[in-house]
Design a protein around this nucleic acid. Structure first.
Lengths: 344, 344
DNA sequence: TTGAAAGCGCTAACAG
DNA sequence: CTGTTAGCGCTTTCAA
């Protein structure tokens, strides 16, 4: 039962005061080189490991930043996290990663927990069911910087790193129109969510610009998961009238599910009978045949930028709370087989 | 500049002692119902949030368990994490998730960091480059339970939840042999790693059982990422002699990369000319055409089981350090098109 | 049922 | 260069 060893144990062993031990361990210039060496070697010998709770309590700094995302397994988020880690690790910060599973209650619990642990900053991409930024006010009230990324809110005045969803959707839709599509459906998530709202607006803008009539029935809202996507495509196929000749999907997950469904259960061919596009460039989108045309969101850049912004705010709290910064990361249309009508 | 509010602030406001506040906040029976209500409402009013560093320091409990995996984005690990979260959340614990990116130095830093934060337990799937369990000894020395999962070590005496890699590989290989394959190659990771060693042994056992000659040149070792897989298949194609008629890949990632490469760059057809199988049942494996035959590892169950074991040990430290428990989770062969030679 | 006092392990004045 | 002292915010005896 080796008990946790503390600086006091080291102090006793070396006949020094615990404050000297503390200084030595922190490589303070105010302690002799010899002493430092003795302390360090004794620490190693006894397997001393600093108690961060105690030290953080004292210094009121945790050198930790909280990261909250809906799902760590989604390509977009895991890449964004890699970007975040790269930036903060270089500055000596640690990250604690949590997932909300797109559930607001879970997200609130996580946010409160991170605050109770007094993280030095928060990077959050909110859940689909999060109504507003109310639950983040505990951070701002206590002057802890917050940066939103990807999923954001207009109200609340938070700084954020977002993706040009509208332009992305516009480009994707335009690309389909250029390919000769006329009856273009849009599968969207919750239109209360900024990212889906923007994609929806981009889709509409492209229709308008090309004098294609917008119709409400062309837009279908859901959770954009596999199951929902299949339900929707089934419903569409069951409806009377001409089928759509194009599908602008709110994400790749739903687009992939539909492509798989059509391939296995119908005689409808992609891209010959219907062209399909998505968002996020999931790894599977480059594996399916035909490849899925999609909008790359540069998630690594988004994560990196958000982290840099946050660290900046941590260093300069004035800036954090007197300004509201928005960085927009550019979209990139990746054209693959799913929208190539004429195999040229 | 609202400063962080503490129990002392509440005490002052309510003209009570901070110890009473603390009791009220912890719903102790040793405080009047009325007082409790007053405290709780004042706490809400002032937006009080407990400082966990202080309380954990005092109680020597963090109600937090550390989870370390190579990559959060891999299907296996993200599912395992979901299993872990489900179990621990029910018991009031929080998890902090970290990724080693399959790098031992990173893993060591993470492990030390988790110890410094005095997590109550550790769940770890080691990086590919981790040589042994030396870096985990700080936990055992201080009586903090550790459970390994998936990537494990025989030495060190740690309790673990593992997957029946050998049997999985055996079944996959046998399935190919049943389909008429004779020249079966094996793509493996580092053979120092138990999981790949076991898969390799299962592969060999299947050959032996069916009187197929094992040849060293049939086994290729790498990191099993996309790039390595493509290098290896290129090399194999360039070699003289007959091509292999089957590939037992150490994971789906490499198998998928090879299928894509063959499809785009050669006239070799899967499964007609070569059959391919992998491990982990990545989402893309069900999307590629033909579908990739794979071994499902039931990662959710693995995570769940490991978490249950750990919580058990936390509750009963005796058990944790006087026994060494190993749970093996069963494999499941998922047959898809990539190994169906005769389209029946 | 509440208060007083001590201390978790660490750091940071202040002193010497 | 090193020691003394106080205190971060909380919990927990002990006492009333």
């Amino acid at each position: 039962m080796t008990n946790n060893i503390t600086i006091h144990d080291l102090a006793k062993e070396l006949k020094l005061d615990s404050s000297t031990i503390s200084r030595a361990l922190n490589d303070s210039p105010r302690v002799g080189v010899k002493t430092k060496e003795r302390v360090l070697s004794k620490a190693k010998e006894l397997g001393y490991q600093r108690n961060l709770m105690a030290s953080n309590l004292r210094t009121k700094k945790t050198m930790t930043i909280g990261v909250v995302v809906p799902h760590i397994s989604r390509h977009f988020f895991s890449e964004a996290i890699d970007g975040i880690e790269q930036v903060v690790a270089g500055k000596g910060y640690r990250v604690v990663i949590s997932q909300s599973h797109d559930d607001f209650k879970t997200e609130k619990k996580i946010v409160d927990g991170l605050f109770m642990n007094r993280v030095d900053g928060l990077l959050i991409s909110s859940s689909m069911t999060t109504p507003n930024t109310e639950h983040l006010s505990i951070f701002t009230k206590n002057n802890i910087p917050v940066v939103l990324f990807d999923r954001y809110f207009e109200k609340g005045g938070f700084s954020k790193v977002v993706f040009e969803d509208k332009k992305g959707a516009f480009n994707l839709t335009q690309h389909m129109i250029d390919g000769g599509c006329k009856k273009i459906y849009h599968l969207t998530g919750d239109l209360e969510s900024q990212i889906y709202k923007q994609r929806y607006l981009g889709y509409r803008e492209a229709l308008k610009k090309n004098d294609l009539k917008f119709q409400k029935t062309f837009v279908r809202s859901s959770n954009l998961n596999k199951e929902d996507a299949i339900k929707i495509i089934k419903a569409i196929l069951n409806e009377k009238g001409q089928l759509p000749d194009a599908l602008v999907c709110g994400n790749d997950i739903s687009a992939l599910a539909i492509m798989k469904y059509l391939d296995e259960n119908t005689s409808i061919r992609v891209p010959e009978d219907i062209v399909i596009g998505g968002f996020s460039n999931e790894p599977a989108s480059d594996i399916i045949k035909p490849g899925l045309t999609t909008i790359d969101q540069h998630p690594f850049i988004i994560g990196k930028t958000a982290a840099e912004m946050l660290l900046n705010f941590i260093d300069d709290k004035e800036k954090a709370f007197q300004t509201s910064n928005t960085v927009v990361v550019r979209s990139e249309l990746i054209v693959r087989g799913s929208t190539k009508k004429n195999k040229s």
